[in-house]
Design a protein around this nucleic acid. Structure first.
Lengths: 190, 190
DNA sequence: GTCTATAGGGGGATAGAC
DNA sequence: GTCTATCCCCCTATAGAC
């Protein structure tokens, strides 16, 4: 029911949303087709297989993340602000119909999704962790955040916490997620 | 291919394993039937619907957890040992074919699983969090572990971290999970 | 308790018209 | 680019024999 030229993008948007809402095994081409007001086959024209669609969603997300972190609006932030920006990604997911993070959604069903999709998830997770580790390192070197242990471990802990926290909120409510974010900050100030 | 009297238990074992391996939407009665060497319909005799089966798995897990924490082998441990026992549950999952925690598996697909199952997951998550919060509170009061902030928040953080950490390990390997466990401990000693 | 057989539906995917 | 039509497979679930 919308723009013909952007239909590919619209499909990706819906697929991304469905992945974060129902998981890879929890949505179908029919869901997207219905939402878009077209038929099943129309989606297959743009993305031959479901694996192709999933891969395209993650690839786009990877590019988006790369653009974000290299954009001056993030690059020029203070160390604390960069961390807040990262936390806000997850807070926004929670506020957006209780979505979970893309990476967590697919790692939970990792052993029942196509291999090509597994590889993309791996790359995205690495790239996000890498940025977070760098930010934590710089922030501690600059003396504006504090934590014990290795930055690489702290980065893995924080990202795991956010990922698990969004999932927890589905069963126990948004307050629980915000409790977790609060504790992440507490554990960064000491 | 096994004991007739224990077939119900065997089905539950397989279903629990499959849930932690492939997720609720990623396994079928056929998987269980093949593994057991029986036919599809035989499983339906024991558990009429897939929802019934899922609910039974989580209910059994809840009872098991309750038995554990009330058993003297856990109850009589020191505060630090209790925490180590809890962490070991997750470490053992990772070592067991890269399973993720039952709660995380189903919260990731929360919006595409039956309602009755959602309720059970909610109860299990509450009960585990509650025990962890209590243990953290007592441990800090006793002066053997240290952390800032509210025990309820710290408990939610630790459990989310373990849940997300097991999922992360699927894409990035076991070392990453152990990094996270290391950091959890670092953040408890200060 | 397990079997055969089957109903009934949904899902992914393709062929060919428009 | 989207449609209709269709294929084929897998899945959940049930009926009734053994």
């Amino acid at each position: 029911m919308v723009k013909i030229e952007n239909s590919k993008r619209t499909i990706l948007n819906l697929a991304e949303s469905l992945l974060q809402d129902k998981g890879f095994n929890g949505f179908s081409y029919a869901h997207i087709a219905n939402e878009l007001g077209v038929k099943n086959a129309a989606i297959h024209y743009h993305f031959a297989t479901k694996e192709d669609l999933g891969v395209a969603v993650v690839q786009r997300y990877r590019e988006r993340f790369k653009l974000w972190i290299n954009n001056s609006r993030v690059k020029d932030l203070s160390h604390e602000e960069k961390l807040d920006w990262f936390l806000r990604i997850y807070t926004d997911f929670r506020a957006d119909k209780g979505k979970v993070c893309l990476v967590g959604s697919m790692e939970a069903e990792f052993n029942s999704i196509p291999e090509g999709l597994q590889s993309e998830v791996q790359l995205l997770h690495k790239e996000m962790l890498d940025w977070l580790r760098g930010t934590l390192t710089e922030g501690r070197d600059a003396g504006v955040i504090a934590f014990n242990g290795e930055p690489v471990n702290k980065a893995a802990l924080i990202m795991s916490t956010l990922q698990g926290g969004l999932q927890m909120a589905r069963a126990l409510g948004s307050k629980k997620f915000h409790d977790v974010v609060t504790q992440i900050k507490v554990d960064l100030l000491v």
